[in-house]
Structures are given as structure tokens and as C-alpha cells.
Simulated scan of single mutants.
Amino acid sequence: MKPTRFETAIALIDKKNAEDPNTYQVSGLEYPKELLYSQRMSRKLLQFKPNASRALQIAARAQHICRWKIARDEYPMDRVGYLKWRETLKKMHADLTSEILNQVGYDSEFIERVSFLINKKLIKKNEETQILEDTICLVFLDYYFEEFAEKHNDDKVVDILRKTWGKMSEEGHAEALKLKLSDKALSLIKQAIA
């Protein structure tokens, strides 16, 4: 049976992310970092919103496509440099994804929708953009937060959590509080949302 356009698009996104030279270890196995991240995004999105649209599923999968190609240190190490880096990344992620979607035969309207989501336009105003943002925050909290918290002092961690929490919807908050987190992680979250 021939794969669908959607399946082919996902496979091509994965193929690009599998080229990530950075690896991440899980249960003693090495994974290309962005490939693992993108698969976690898909899994978390479908746990959170089982009826997510195809456009939203592709945007979640491609959210960090080829992220390693633009290093953080290519930009000034301040807030302005960080924001410029993030904007440049979003544009690259959207452009690469658009090329893939065009290649597999999606129309321009669908491609523009996916780009709109990857660029995280109208967070808090657009339902799907908000779902994508919630999913990003849930993936961070579920898979990367504990490790992040070990490397930074509690004040910085609480500040990051406060910002993360602020980007999320009420539904996202409820989902986050269902995650299996350590007592330490939960107490930091409680401090952040107090």
C-alpha cells in the first residue's frame, strides 16, 4: 500500500532530523536529538489532542526541524540575540517544512497553515497555535525539565517555569499537573504558579 502524503511528509521530516549530529541518551540508547524531540512532540500532541488536524500534527513534528544548523552562539548572548536567533530558527523550520510539503503535493493553503503554526502566530488567540505552544511546554516539562532543573539554581528554574506557565492555556495547565514529576519538580512548579 502506498503511503499517504501525510505519512510521506512525516517520514521526510524524520529523515532530516535523523541527520542531527547531536545525540540524546534514553535508557542507554543514543538518538539524534531533534529526531527524538520531534517524535516526543507528536506523541504528546496526540495524547493531549487526539483529534489534532493534519496541519497541526505536521507543525508539531517539524517544530525543530534541522535546529542544529543555526547555533545559538552565532547571535549575541543577550535577550535581543536570543530572540533574533529564535525568529531565524522559526523561519528556517517553516521554510524547510514548506519545501517538504510542496514536494509531497500539499496545496499552498495547507502549506501556509503549517507555516503559520510553526511561526507560532497569534498565541492565545488562535486555538491551534495555542495547542502547539501547550504541547511544546508539556514536552519540556515531561522530558527535559528535571535535567534542566539540576543544572540551574532554583530562582532561575522558577523564573523559566513562570514564563512557561504564562504561555500555556488553562487546559495545558491541567494537563501539566497530571504529569508524573518528582516532588522537587512539583514544588518548583507550585512556587512558580503561586
Score class of each variant (00 low, 15 high):
residue 165 W to T: 07
residue 53 S to I: 03
residue 127 E to A: 15
residue 194 A to N: 13
residue 19 E to F: 11
residue 53 S to N: 06
residue 78 D to K: 01
residue 111 I to R: 08
residue 50 P to G: 04
residue 167 K to I: 05
residue 146 E to I: 01
residue 30 E to C: 05
residue 129 T to N: 00
residue 22 N to V: 04
residue 85 W to Y: 14
residue 161 L to T: 04
residue 52 A to E: 11
residue 49 K to I: 04
residue 154 D to R: 07
residue 138 L to E: 04
residue 41 M to G: 00
residue 119 N to S: 10
residue 152 H to R: 09
residue 33 K to S: 14
residue 125 K to N: 12
residue 16 K to S: 12
residue 188 L to V: 09
residue 1 M to L: 09
residue 172 G to R: 00
residue 89 L to G: 10
residue 119 N to V: 08
residue 102 N to A: 06
residue 145 F to P: 04
residue 51 N to M: 11
residue 144 Y to K: 09
residue 70 I to D: 10
residue 12 L to P: 03
residue 69 K to F: 09
residue 54 R to W: 15
residue 118 I to K: 01
residue 127 E to L: 13
residue 127 E to S: 14
residue 158 V to S: 05
residue 191 Q to P: 12
residue 26 V to S: 03
residue 116 F to D: 11
residue 175 E to Y: 07
residue 116 F to S: 13
residue 45 L to Y: 04
residue 185 A to T: 09
residue 187 S to A: 11
residue 42 S to E: 13
residue 48 F to D: 08
residue 151 K to L: 12
residue 112 E to L: 13
residue 134 D to C: 03
residue 95 D to K: 13
residue 77 M to C: 07
residue 12 L to R: 12
residue 154 D to V: 06
residue 55 A to G: 14
residue 181 L to Y: 10
residue 110 F to H: 15
residue 31 Y to L: 05
residue 25 Q to H: 06
residue 181 L to M: 12
residue 158 V to N: 02
residue 188 L to C: 09
residue 160 I to F: 11
residue 129 T to S: 12
residue 97 T to C: 05
residue 157 V to T: 10
residue 49 K to E: 13
residue 8 T to Y: 04
residue 1 M to E: 10
residue 119 N to I: 09
residue 25 Q to V: 13
residue 142 D to C: 07
residue 74 E to Q: 15
residue 158 V to I: 15
residue 38 S to C: 08
residue 2 K to W: 06
residue 87 E to C: 13
residue 123 I to D: 12
residue 156 K to R: 15
residue 99 E to M: 02
residue 146 E to L: 03
residue 129 T to V: 01
residue 106 Y to N: 02
residue 48 F to K: 03
residue 80 V to P: 00
residue 34 E to W: 01
residue 182 S to L: 00
residue 14 D to R: 06
residue 115 S to P: 06
residue 131 I to R: 08
residue 14 D to H: 14
residue 135 T to I: 01
residue 65 I to R: 01
residue 177 L to E: 06
residue 188 L to A: 07
residue 138 L to Q: 02
residue 127 E to H: 15
residue 131 I to F: 12
residue 167 K to M: 13
residue 3 P to R: 12
residue 103 Q to F: 04
residue 32 P to F: 05
residue 146 E to Q: 08
residue 141 L to S: 06
residue 124 K to I: 08
residue 149 A to M: 02
residue 12 L to I: 04
residue 144 Y to L: 09
residue 85 W to H: 14
residue 94 A to V: 00
residue 38 S to L: 05
residue 86 R to I: 06
residue 116 F to K: 05
residue 36 L to D: 00
residue 97 T to K: 01
residue 165 W to K: 05
residue 135 T to M: 01
residue 191 Q to L: 15
residue 5 R to Y: 12
residue 167 K to F: 11
residue 146 E to D: 13
residue 15 K to F: 12
residue 56 L to G: 02
residue 164 T to Y: 00
residue 121 K to F: 08
residue 142 D to L: 02
residue 113 R to G: 10
residue 73 D to C: 07
residue 28 G to S: 03
residue 140 F to D: 07
residue 130 Q to G: 08
residue 112 E to P: 12
residue 181 L to G: 09
residue 10 I to E: 03
residue 59 A to F: 02
residue 171 E to S: 10
residue 178 K to C: 14
residue 125 K to Y: 12
residue 10 I to P: 06
residue 34 E to S: 04
residue 146 E to W: 00
